[in-house]
Amino acid sequence: MHVGLHHYLFVSFLLFSLGLLGVIMRRNLLVIYMSLELMLNSANLALVSFSRFNHKLDGQVLVFFIITVAAAEVAVGLALIVALYRKRQSAHVEDLTSMKL
């Protein structure tokens, strides 16, 4: 059986689920952040494969934007984590119980 859109979408689905599980179950902020990246990447994969099998470039343009936004998001998020760590000396979700810094 030829590899088609289904296969790619299935891989993308599995990646997304893994990312989701990571976000829900892990407690280290940085690992949660990496799981978010996994989810974004799975969306990228789905979009690129749609673009390939529908013969349209729009999907790839969207991926381009996602990568850009992800870079910005990571920069801001990591800066937030560093700021949080300075205040609390911890990067653990369970240690962050109050909304006020």
Binding site: V48, A71, A75
Partner: peptide, 27 residues
């Protein structure tokens, strides 16, 4: 590598350049 199989060469390169080269180094 999957992107390459999907013939998205530009995105494959950008993926490595931005994600692996910059974002993960930042991490």
């Amino acid at each position: 590598g999957l992107f390459l199989l999907l013939h998205a060469f530009f995105l494959a390169a950008v993926q490595i350049l931005v994600y692996a080269g910059a974002v993960m180094v930042l991490f």
